[in-house]
Nucleic acid binder design. Structure first.
Length: 948
DNA sequence: AAGGTCACG
DNA sequence: GACGTACGTGACCTTG
């Protein structure tokens, strides 16, 4: 049987734009910009390399746009009228794309009056008719219409897509995920939503969400438009009726022309696998030396100096680039996992350690039995000294039932004794990705690693907020590798499997384990070379060196300390909560007249509003009643006893499940304490976040909840000490916005909310002070009249009047807000007093809700972020200050944004308190001189509750 | 996996 | 004229 043919159609035009934005602005030896061409060339190379693979191409062609005019302009003159001119340094690269394609001896198709998309569609269909498979190399959403399968002469022939930037295959499920409908209906969705880039009108006011919902519901565009008159009265209905013409026009514009005449026959696209003659000359001419080396099959040859010249980049000018990483990048050979060494003898280990000493810079990664660094065992260590120059030292593989024989390995204690002097050597920098984890693992094995660098933290300090919906925060290694190195790492799943079939890393055969583990070190090393120079160029050095980098070992040590919790006390509370919730549940069922799941907001809503007939509105997309606290409180105030009981039930159920039950389960069997994990990159503003368990949200606001704090206790003979910054964010706002009245009030030690009440309402009462407090917070969070109105239960007009009064009484605030927004709009990021950047990619969004959300976050970020910087500096200085004073027994345990919790011998309290206070109060200095004092309140006691 | 709810600063 | 309206988090529950 004949081999299944597989045609790859490369959407060259769209690729080059994306490559331009993602790659550094490199120039070739003649000074021609070639960054995008380089990206394009490597992509072609990768595809050609896949020639013999199962999914690889047998035929390939590159399709380009000839010019911007097409038959669509005849139908609709405004088509693509909004397209901005391509950037200055991209224009000269277009002809080079053709050169590059020719250098590979690949066909390059373009046709007057036809867009690349139409040619691609026509070729794809033609090939499909022949029974071929087709892969469209593009991520253009318009092309997703083509994805799918038909029966060809020799069985099914499918069309899929490949996004080489994300290394993602796009088939029916991916299209359905993106559009919520099958590929055949994508055109209908596109017609409704329109496209601002191509200037396709769509229906005004309908975006991707509404569009896919409508099509999914009605089955087609025509059906949705036809049924509009029968819909219930709404804005959407009107829009559908009025926009019918626009939608029908858009439907034509987004339809791909699938019957273009083919300029060249399909058979001409056959790949022959012979390295083309002109390629070397092309690579040589443009200084693509690493590719040239690969062409020479000189794998593993030493690095030669690179011919490509990075262009100096002004940081302020790259706001438009989605990922914006447009800096010089040393060119490196592609990752070659076969180059890694498995170190199984002491001689080889000593050899690597000696080389690491000599190079003074080594990337390190540890492999363990679990993600929890406080319970895991060490399984192996990998080192990298350069690209592909990496090894894996297995230490804990095998030994279980499945592996009767332990593979040859160096004895753990022997290997650690050899590694320890290297890892503790002041003169050798150890590079990690998320080093806090490895620091804890190694510390538990008797090694105090120092000094360290951390690519995850560097990435955060450069790019916080930039990955918009990034899963995992956007600073994980796999993501960074994709983004900066264009390399896909082996995933843990690839090695260990998933679900029930998952095996522990310790049972992975050594050859596989080496590929995975050494690659991690290799990639970390490469990322460091790529990211570290950016710090200096983009102004990130200060925050990294002065705030975040010194904090890593400090936070690691806090995690290892943990905090003692009184298990018996929690158990008793759990029991009490259990009886009480059971009692409440019965009463609730009685009032409801039936049994139902009280914990189900859906069921509760139906009971309250349908069955019992209380008034309350439906909410949002799900069409479900809202039953949150504010709703229930309102009902309760109107005499609905059931609402009051549900509130009580929820309060107790929450405390039980989230705290009294969960915390008991989190007690570490070895230490008897609870060890949280802090994320240093969790919050875009620079705050820490806490997980497993979250110790930053232990109850304090209610008396019942505070009982949980009573279970956080010191060891015998010790006390807990809590030190809080008082009103730090308002103080910082007063300083940053330069508000004289507020600064004076803080200097005089006044109650700031009372002072605000005086300024705003002329008198201080319980009510005016409470209102003033709300307004003060509203200012910090980026105010809107509606938001404030909701909180204060007044009309928006009245809220606006208060905002006006506030701005008037505290001149400076309004200016701060305007100036902050202006700079964020212009540069794309906000900055704290210590230079921490937070990016706001949606600040200029055309979607109002999105834009306004970004605006509020941008107003808050410098304040919240500066506060985070300050407490981080205090934390980094705390233990040295205490040790200098002979107070080495004091242990710092927890951080809760503006609070630090310590455990110390009772007799040290007197000496330690003033030192702790001073370190915290002085933490901004000398980098920043604040015009307000930082107030610190300290308390001690036999529990965390008592320390407040 | 998502949405709702609620714990904290 | 409608949208949804306070910033930053994480955990648990129910439901699809």
């Amino acid at each position: 049987m004949a081999q299944q043919q597989h045609l790859y159609l490369v959407d060259g035009s769209s690729y080059i734009f994306r490559a331009y934005h993602r790659l550094p602005p490199l120039t070739d030896p003649e000074g021609t910009p070639v960054g995008a061409v380089y990206g394009y060339t490597t992509m072609l190379w990768k595809l050609a390399d896949d020639l013999d693979k199962a999914e690889g191409p047998t035929h390939l062609a590159v399709i380009l746009d000839k010019d911007s005019q097409s038959f669509r302009n005849e139908i609709y003159p405004e088509y693509k009228a909004n397209r901005p001119e391509p950037p200055e340094d991209l224009r000269p690269q277009f002809p080079l794309i053709r050169d590059a394609t020719r250098a590979f001896s690949l066909p390059c198709i373009e046709e007057q009056g036809l867009e690349a998309d139409d040619l691609i569609a026509s070729y794809a269909r033609a090939a499909q008719r022949e029974g071929w498979n087709v892969t469209i190399v593009s991520s253009d959403k318009d092309l997703m219409q083509l994805v799918g399968e038909v029966d060809g002469p020799n069985g099914p022939a499918r069309i899929d897509m490949l996004d080489t930037m994300k290394s993602q295959r796009i088939y029916i499920p991916e299209v359905e995920e993106k559009f919520g409908v099958a590929p055949e209906l994508v055109g209908d969705v596109l017609a409704l939503m329109g496209d601002s880039v191509d200037n396709i009108p769509g229906i005004y006011g309908i975006g991707p969400k509404t569009a896919s919902k409508l099509i999914a519901e009605h089955g087609s565009l025509t059906a949705a438009l036809d049924q509009a008159p029968e819909m219930k009265t709404s804005k959407l209905k009107e829009r559908l009726i009025e926009g019918r013409g626009d939608a029908e026009l858009s439907r034509i514009l987004v339809t791909l022309k699938e019957d273009c005449e083919l300029p060249e026959p399909l058979d001409d696209f056959k790949l022959d696998g012979v390295p083309p003659e002109p390629l070397a000359a092309f690579l040589e001419k443009h200084g693509f030396t690493s590719l040239l080396r690969r062409l020479d099959a000189g794998k593993g040859s030493p690095d030669r100096p690179n011919n490509l010249n990075p262009v100096k980049q002004e940081t302020a000018s790259d706001k438009g680039a989605p990922e914006g990483n447009r800096q010089p990048m040393p060119e490196m050979p592609a990752v070659d996992r076969s180059a890694y060494e498995t170190v199984q003898t002491i001689e080889r280990l000593e050899h690597w350690v000696a080389r690491a000493h000599a190079s003074q810079q080594v990337a390190v990664d540890t492999e363990t039995t679990s993600l929890d660094c406080m319970v895991c065992d060490l399984v192996g260590v990998s080192l990298a000294l350069g690209p592909n120059d990496a090894c894996y030292i297995p230490l804990g593989h095998g030994g279980s039932d499945m592996f009767a024989e332990r593979p040859e390995q160096i004895e753990m204690s022997v290997a650690l004794a050899v590694l320890k002097p290297l890892l503790e050597n002041d003169a050798v920098v150890k590079i990690f990705q998320n080093g806090k984890y490895d620091l804890n693992v190694l510390a538990r094995n008797g090694i105090e690693v120092s000094p360290i660098e951390d690519t995850m933290i560097i990435s955060f300090d450069l790019d916080a907020g930039r990955s918009q919906d990034g899963i995992g925060g956007g600073h994980g290694m796999d993501e960074l590798s994709e983004r900066h190195l264009g390399h896909t790492c082996l995933s843990f799943k690839d090695i260990c499997g998933t679900g029930k079939k998952q095996i522990p890393f310790a049972e992975v055969p050594l050859d596989k384990a080496t590929e995975y583990a050494a690659e991690d070190a290799d990639v970390t090393w490469r990322l460091f070379q790529h990211l570290k120079p950016r710090l200096a160029i983009e102004g990130g050095t200060k925050i990294y060196e002065r705030v975040d980098r010194p904090l890593i070992p400090v936070v690691a040590s806090m995690e290892r300390e943990g905090i003692k919790v009184d298990r018996a006390r929690l158990a008793k509370l759990s029991e009490e909560f259990a009886t009480e919730t059971a009692r409440l549940e019965k009463e609730i069922h009685q009032l409801a007249g039936e049994e139902f799941t009280v914990g189900s907001p859906k069921q509760l809503g139906d009971i309250l509003f349908d069955k019992l007939g209380y008034k309350g509105g439906r909410k949002g997309k799900s069409g479900q009643y809202s039953t949150d606290q504010s709703v229930l409180e309102k009902l309760s105030g109107e005499g609905a006893d059931i609402a009051k009981l549900v509130l009580e039930w929820r309060h107790l159920a929450k405390l039980k499940s989230t705290y009294t039950d969960a915390l008991q389960a989190q007690i570490n069997p070895d230490t008897g304490r609870v060890h949280t994990s802090y994320s240093l990159v969790g919050a875009q503003t620079g705050r820490l976040s806490s997980t497993d368990p979250n110790l930053q949200n232990i109850p304090i606001r209610t008396a019942i909840g505070r009982q949980i704090r009573e279970a956080f206790v010191p060891e015998a003979g010790n006390v807990l000490l809590a030190a809080d910054y008082s009103q730090i964010e308002l103080r910082l706002a007063a300083h940053m916005a330069d508000v004289e009245t507020l600064k004076e009030a803080f200097a005089a030690g006044e109650d700031i909310h009372s002072r605000t009440a005086t300024e705003m309402f002329g008198e201080v009462t319980r009510d005016t002070r409470a209102r003033a407090k709300t307004i003060n917070f509203a200012i910090l969070y980026g105010i809107s009249r509606w938001g404030l109105a909701g909180r204060l239960e007044v009309e928006p007009d009245e809220a606006q009047a208060m905002i006006d009064t506030y701005f008037q009484r505290f001149p400076g605030i309004q200016r701060y807000i305007m100036e902050t927004l202006e700079t964020v709009r212009e540069r794309g990021y906000s900055e704290t007093l210590f230079g921490r950047k937070t990016w706001f990619p949606r600040i200029n969004s055309k979607n109002q809700a999105e834009r306004q959300g970004s605006e509020r976050a941008a107003i808050n970020a410098p304040i919240q972020g500066t506060s985070a910087d300050i407490i981080k500096r205090a934390m980094a200085r705390m233990m040295p200050a205490l040790e200098d004073a002979g107070l080495g027994r004091v242990r710092m345990l927890l951080q809760v944004h503006d609070e630090l919790v310590f455990e110390l011998p009772e007799e040290d309290v007197e000496a330690a308190s003033p030192i702790i206070e001073k370190v915290m109060a002085e933490a901004a200095r000398p980098a920043v001189e604040l015009s307000v004092p930082l107030g610190v309140e300290i308390g001690t006691g036999a529990s965390w509750d008592a320390a407040h």
